[in-house]
Design a protein around this nucleic acid. Sequence first.
RNA 1: GGCGAUGUAGCUCAGUCGGUUAGAGCAACGGCUUCAUAAGCCGUGCGUCGGUGGUUCGAGUCCACUCAUCGCUACCA
Length: 687
Amino acid sequence: MSSKRMLVTAALPYANGHIHLGHLVEYIQTDIWVRFQKLRGRRCIFICADDTHGTAIMIRARQEGRPETELIADMQAAHEKDFAGFDIAFDHYGSTNAPENYELCKQIWGSLSKAGLVREDDVEQLFDPEAGTFLADRFVKGTCPSCKSVGEYGDNCSKCGATYAPTDLIDPVSTLSGATPVKRSAKHLFVQLEQLHAFLDAWTQSGEHLQSEVANYLKGHFLGKPLRDWDVSRPEPYFGFPIPDSPGNYWYVWFDAPIGYIASTHQWCKRNGEQLEDWWKSSDTEIHHFIGKDITYFHTLFWPGVLKAAGYSLPTFVHIHGFLTVDREKMSKSKGTQVRASKYLEHLDPSYLRYYYASKLGPRLDDIDLNLSEFAQKIDSDLVGKVVNLASRTARFVDGVGLASEYPHDGGLFAAAAAAGEKIAEAYEQCDYSRAMRLIMELADAANAFVDNTAPWTLKKDPNQHVRLQEVCTIVLNLFRQLCVYLTPVLPRLAQQCGRLFQVDIKAWDDSQKPLCGIQLSKFEHLMQRVDLAKVNQMIEESKETPAPSTNDAAVAPASSAAPATDSGDALLAEPLAPTCTIEDFAKVDLRVARVIKAEEVPEAKKLIKLTVSLGGDTTRTVFAGIKAAYTPAQLEGRLVVIVANLQPRQMKFGLSEGMVTAAGAGGTEVFLLGVDSGAKPGHRVH
RNA sequence: GGCGAUGUAGCUCAGUCGGUUAGAGCAACGGCUUCAUAAGCCGUGCGUCGGUGGUUCGAGUCCACUCAUCGCUACCA
């Protein structure tokens, strides 16, 4: 805690793909932490870079018919734009394909060699003679040697679960060229991590550098037996750095990627007149890595081992987070839940996502779930309804007069919230953002209760109370600003807007400790919009990719007709069967096919969409359906639905509903309208 | 198959070294308010703390077993 400098990294995004909402968990988490440290007055830099090497990049560049350097330059530009759009503020964003990185790789490699950690061995691998390249497991397909299932990948069988080497496949085929691969032996270089076993045992199990789950995982998984040698070379052709003392070999991408942290820092140092040694070889510098749990091994065993052997500082802490699920499921391109950062930004405010992730993130590596209806609800309720609302409830009342010259008595509200600052800071420090957000919202609740109790709108009506009115508003506006200070790491834009309103920028955490008085305010402007669900839905809709019937997908997807249904009984348990009814009972209900001819938003309604449906001919009905969270009007117009046509009309707040649209599902966003097979016409009765 | 994490109110989660009638936010329901982006305030929660068995004067909290979910892994990690 007392060290002078702090270096923070997020994992280097791979240049083979665009940034999506899953990646952003990490960058937002890290950015919040860095902004927090800076706000607290720490000397802290945030370093990142694009990870650019490897077979995947090489193959893709070939497919696109252009040099790798062009591909990675384009991708880097896209990454940086996405990050900037989400207010992720790196101090430096470099690339692993940089001369500084090559220099460092050579130097560190030299240290590893000198320490006697490198050995050489022959590895037999499949080679694609047409593409002229060795093939990683996932680039080979063939028949499973165990169950004879065809079209299986080179590492294991999706049918019988057998594992094998790609060289064991029957009739192997390269997915790159379709050629039959041949076995070929090549010289590989290995780092003998086992020599560092004792060190890694001590470092990982000290309880100081890793979350306890991670330490347990490593202990149970790797450290209980000898550590395997790590294959860090790849024979040409390969896009990467050539190994100087091993002609024809390149460093495996995972060797030079983490070194990119140092190289990128080096670039930053050059631009800012700093010494790299102060940041990577000084006990006065804390180094914090933020990563996802999928790359735990590299950052907690291999990387510390390399740093140790090469004489660099070890990470102070490796902060590991879980994955993002959307509505409890893995992100899916076909469902449109793998939303690109750029797509999100076309429709929604980045502050929403920053706050939502913050409200979900804790210090452990649990997965976090993006629930789209909760997302909208939380932003509306917490940020718009509670925080921003404080300013819009009071700012107008002090137009022209400004804030009181002295801070009035407020029953200890400001002081209590100022005191809460330490607890909030501690939560941020421990990466327990969800706790920090909860604490902040408690303060917002207290402030809103104060507004209600003092009723400034009543004071306004009585000219004798105008001094008191100014006092009340001074209190509320200061409480609002205090919240903005606490939220600054998460919502830098709100903090800026707050600065404009008060004409005093938020610069430090301690700005939360003293109220502002005797100043004029700028004209109040809306600070944040409510979440438009239509835009959320549209974003999902536009993110849907119909899976191309490529050979890859065909192998993974089960043949639809042959796959046995494995539906859970949850739905039935949630809503058990109703008592038996007779055919006469059922006949009372007149279900009809109808066409939605008009679907309209009911802005005042939380759940309803107003539908005009046609039963054929001139017969139309107006029906209000509680499906707003699940459908947009645009999705509904023109489609066929099944309605209860003889339901007694019901007067609702927004008009008369003359029927009911049938749907299944639990409600909320889980509403699935009933459709009919093609051929049915509006007016047809359901028997 | 191995390992790990999780399983507490409709939803998201808190529950510190085991200790009195198990908590919060959101949703829902009832009431109030109208300054504010239909925002806000007050009130309402008999939940088998996944299950079974055990340790204990006492367990959501410890132990064993078990079920479910998720993740990692299964010799180029």
